[in-house]
Design a protein around this nucleic acid. Structure first.
Lengths: 336, 336
DNA sequence: TACCCTGAGCAAAACGTTTCGCTCTGTGAG
DNA sequence: CTCACAGAGCGAAACGTTTTGCTCAGGGTA
């Protein structure tokens, strides 16, 4: 049904090779270019990327695999990357792992089957066996947010320890000494890093390690944050300040604090989602990841691999997160 | 680099046709099946979907084009659809229009170039010229959330008028008579429908049409909702209740109310994002779209088209949204 | 015995491009 | 005048599958 080169040949009388040249910037007489363009308009021709990809072994397409589509952090990065990639002539295919390692595996193989030229992945866990298949095919990979084990790949991460340490410093400067952290299992790279940064900063500022009951490893969900905050507030000696280890915890903790309204109001540092911060009163401080920069670096790394230097040793870019300070009243209330 | 049928032929001595049969469920001797599987394991073979798609003219892949990736409404629907499509043997490619009609056009052509078998689209506007190209190629399309002009396509929408009317009824039942609506331009299908439903319901319950200054057409952004709510509250006679026409308005309006904290506290019905509702105190009522059902119907419609009945006249499924009632105090405060 | 059917396999022709050689101009340098 | 070379074009061979005919053996039916 759809028009092909053969239709253009029929209309223009030119050979397939010449037509191909026209679409790929070869030497074609201006007069012939025009005839081809006329035929294209007449036939409603569009180049078939599948055939092109098969023959040329380049799809000019990158795959993006997200651990979770429904996260502002991820979608923001995707938007930023797509724009840059488009400028470089690449299309993008987005896949959602929905937090499942199996789905992630399927997504990667789906994308390899589509002959993507490269892969950007926000991995579900630290182990992504399917990436070995990508490597075997010579498809370069950039990991974002978390590095992957085996370390054959480039990565872009933030300095999670420093980010949480800055939050602790802010709270300690406001006079807090009993500071808690809502965190997830150590098996998550970001959770582990944030916990380590937290422990170190608390020790540095207070002279002793955080109390074990103030460092809660929780299921990484809104409910986890909700339960965590409630448990903290019901301790015999509750913390006067709480750092949330990610967005889900921030949202869950906020809900918990609303439900406990008035009873307790610890100081509070959120994570990741500035829109949320604007809705909460008094406006809390937030750790904000430099999503634009993350996207820029990731694109830079993958494009570098694609344009030849496949042999450069894998590189991990470490970026700094910002601490956006909220309203002072938060901290004053935390101390009351 | 990657293994092909030819490699399997080399190892097993079988013909390409037989190998193809094995991968597509034809008649192959058990012994030969085993030999092929061994070769596959040994070679790390994976079928090349690009070549397969080119030859068979079916990619077993659907394209999903979202007006805006970063919207919970969209990502939730995508997740639900992906799962169902996977069960039906289809892969999915997600593209983001970022609110731009040009990007949408590009995305559709990108997907057609990838030979997708069908398209699900949450359109940016009511006019999507690129869909004519899809039709010309025999690629079926299902529009979600908003129908597209020309109406050659199936669609799944909600009964926007009834949804907003239910919100108005709830507020009217609580005694409100001065009810406002934060809405967008009438050129947006959902915005127009919601405005019409609002006007009709207000007329029915109060005996007169809503006051013009209470029906604000705003830019569809968080800022729009923010400004809109502030303008409403500064009117000589401000409304005692406000219905938000979508998620952005809900978020913006919430921020505005937080900033005006104490001065005014109108009753308030939000839209779309139940997570947000749980964070706001007192918890407002929300119009919640049946995202799972929307996804299910959309998948049903596209699969039906793909399995033959291409000639069925286009169908528009209209689903009902739920009104999740919040805390009564919201309305009492609104009346104080 | 003759017949037809089914299972199992093969060779070769697609699918719509790109790419590899090759030919044939015309042109400017030597 | 010759030669080399670049511009412009062409035919044919890929790319990795599926699909279309075809062959052949075996077995059940009449």
């Amino acid at each position: 049904m759809a028009a092909t080169y053969k239709d253009i040949r029929r209309v223009t009388g030119l050979s397939l090779a010449t037509i191909s040249k026209h679409f790929n910037g070869g030497n074609v007489l201006a007069a012939n270019r025009e005839r081809i363009e006329e035929a294209v308009a007449e036939l409603g021709y569009r180049v078939n990327d599948v055939a092109r990809g098969l023959r040329s072994r380049r799809s000019m397409t990158l795959g993006i695999v997200l651990d979770e589509l429904n996260r502002t952090f991820n979608t923001t990065i995707v938007s930023a990357m797509e724009e840059r990639l488009r400028d470089a002539g690449y299309g993008t295919i987005i896949c959602d792992s929905r937090g499942s390692a199996e789905a992630e595996d399927e997504a990667i193989h789906f994308l390899l089957g589509k002959m993507v030229d490269g892969l950007v992945i926000v991995p579900v866990g630290s182990d992504v066996p399917a990436l070995a298949d990508a490597a075997a095919r010579g498809v370069p990979v950039v990991a974002v947010d978390r590095p992957v084990a085996g370390a054959g790949t480039d990565a872009v991460v933030i300095d999670n320890r420093a980010a949480v340490a800055a939050a602790v410093d802010l709270l300690a400067d406001a006079g807090h000494t009993a500071i808690a952290l809502l965190t997830g299992p150590d098996s998550w790279y970001t959770m582990r890093e944030r916990r380590l940064g937290f422990a170190e900063a608390v020790a540095r500022r207070t002279g002793r390690p955080p109390r074990p009951e103030h460092v809660l490893p929780l299921p990484v969900t809104i409910e986890g944050g909700f339960d965590g905050m409630r448990r903290l507030m019901r301790l015999a000696s509750p913390p006067t300040a709480v750092v949330c280890g990610n967005y889900e915890f921030t949202l869950g903790a906020t809900i918990a604090l609303n439900e406990l309204a008035g009873e307790v109001t610890p100081a509070f540092v959120g994570f990741d989602h500035l829109d949320l911060a604007r809705v909460i009163r008094p406006r809390p401080s937030f750790v904000v990841q430099p999503v634009d920069e993350i996207a820029a670096r990731a694109v830079e790394l993958i494009l570098a691999r694609l344009s030849g230097d496949a042999e450069r040793p894998p590189e991990t870019a470490v970026l700094r997160a910002d601490l956006v300070v909220g309203e002072a009243s938060t901290y004053e209330r935390g101390l009351s």
